[in-house]
Write a protein that binds this DNA or RNA. Sequence first.
DNA 1: CCCGAATATATAGCATTGCAATGCAATGTA
DNA 2: TACATTGCATTGCAATGCTATATATTCGGG
Lengths: 217, 217
Amino acid sequence: MARTKDPAVRTLLIERAAHMLRVREPITLRSLVAGTGVSTMAVYTYFDGMDGVWKALRQEGFTRLAARFAELTTSADPVRDLAALIASYLANALDHPDLYRVMFDAAFELEDLKAADATLEHLVQAALRAREAGRFHPDVVPLELAIQSWTIGHGLASLVANGPLPLETLDHCVPMLTALYVSVGDEPGGCRRSVEDGWKQLRLGQPGSSRSTPSDP
Amino acid sequence: MARTKDPAVRTLLIERAAHMLRVREPITLRSLVAGTGVSTMAVYTYFDGMDGVWKALRQEGFTRLAARFAELTTSADPVRDLAALIASYLANALDHPDLYRVMFDAAFELEDLKAADATLEHLVQAALRAREAGRFHPDVVPLELAIQSWTIGHGLASLVANGPLPLETLDHCVPMLTALYVSVGDEPGGCRRSVEDGWKQLRLGQPGSSRSTPSDP
DNA sequence: CCCGAATATATAGCATTGCAATGCAATGTA
DNA sequence: TACATTGCATTGCAATGCTATATATTCGGG
């Protein structure tokens, strides 16, 4: 028995914030709502303050990453798929470096943990398939291998996207992943081919879907 | 022919800022100088604004890391030393998580690049010694191996110190480094022993030297 | 059909932030 | 000793995030 919130306002503001992040405009309470017609109070109704906006932006970042993962097709070569996932991870981070920074530069809360777990799950499943395909030792723990793959991807993404290392450093991904997967049982020659094959999925420069989810209303 | 700057003021402010970072007090222009007797203008004379304070804090972070590296003794086992360097890197990041975040959450400038290169050089030298000791293939590029080691260390540090992964994840460092060094020629059994040996250098909980350098006056 | 309550929204204002401007004080040099 | 140069304290300003209050709007029940 009252006025209802318009979800379009929320998505509008998130998309605008993501855009401002992309063009490197400072995101302030007033600059965010400027031109949208909505008042500053909308930020409090829909996000409970600017902190909520940043939290929503973090979610948006994980959402876009998930969308990128979803575009990948699983092949008969699970090691290739694993490398392709990391390649996608890096491509996403480098296409949206500012958004990537927002995703990791604040203390993780429960909501972010869930989002991170969801993306990690993709890696876990790929590792599991690789183990069941006989590429890895039977006693390999998929979660551990997923975490290690993530560590390599995130380390590279962080040092290249907003850090000191140049773009070419990304190529180090191939030998590192190969070394990792060989160490858990994969045959060196075939592993190298698989990783290089998956690495070809690295496609920079396509911003990716700009869609945002209303999510937690 | 004028009044001279007192370097003690600069050091005092940096140490105070590092302390506030440590106890998680918000660092503002006024809160930084509060209680020190100096006025807000001192921040402009010594740091040219708050941005300069953050830049100095980043330098302080690299300085402390360098101090930690300097405490390490090089042994007859260069692979062990390499692992020990990464262990020190992680210990430093986890003992000063907020400072570590400051070091990497801003766009790198030339000054930071130099500091980062200086710490990377430690890894390069260790990799070089390992190659010359015959542990790695003769055509291994020390810089590349150093970068890859750094990537693993930074990835873990970032995901554990201010990220979603729990502290136990640090143990993944041993298999990852072992896999990396085996992939460039080291013998698996001995490599594992060397890495585990160097990993024992991981000593968390000791804040490390609180000294700060006047540095670039 | 309409009225009331609940909720969104608009406006104004507040404390705090980083920073610039100005005037004063201190100090090294001639 | 006189002066020029620089550090330093004070004041003030624009911008920030947020809150308080008043207004407008919409949904539910009679």
